[in-house]
């Protein structure tokens, strides 16, 4: 079974999206990156993010990730912010009762995007 299936697929994404987004908006380390964006649209993008991190179906390429975050890199997005997002993601899954082993796998998937997201 794929990671995405083990986590519970689309239903898991739906369960996680509000919790995760609430954490991000309250996280003083990173919430400034999200302050300018339309919350409702952003919520759909959070779903895209979660689907990706859960190893689910998506057609984003590394180049898309680069382009999608370039304006944030210009505002100073760096490794510490990336770590904060991964941390919030882990805390979200923990709250939903996901095992540490699966959380580590999600973090590993997110890790594969680090260089693209940070434009390195």
């Amino acid at each position: 079974m794929s990671l995405y299936q083990q986590l519970g697929g689309e239903a898991a994404v739906n369960a996680a999206v509000d919790i995760f987004y609430r954490k991000v908006l309250q996280d003083e380390r990173i919430n400034r990156f999200f302050s300018g964006v339309d919350m409702e649209k952003q919520s759909a993008k959070q779903k895209a993010f979660l689907t990706m991190a859960f190893g689910g179906p998506n057609h984003y390429t590394g180049a898309d990730m680069r382009r999608g975050h370039a304006h944030l890199v210009a505002q100073g997005l760096n490794d510490s912010h990336f770590d904060a997002v991964v941390e919030d993601l882990g805390a979200t899954l923990k709250e939903l009762g996901v095992s540490d082993a699966l959380i580590a796998q999600v973090a590993a998937v997110a890790e594969t995007t680090r260089n693209d997201v940070l434009g390195k």
Partner: peptide, 26 residues
């Protein structure tokens, strides 16, 4: 955007005919 039914960038509206099954999930 994602082309996987998640980001909702490709939202359209059906004016006539039957909305295909599964196209409204989420």
């Amino acid at each position: 955007g994602c082309r996987a039914g998640v980001c909702q960038s490709c939202l359209m509206r059906c004016l006539e005919g039957e909305v295909p099954a599964g196209a409204q999930e989420g």
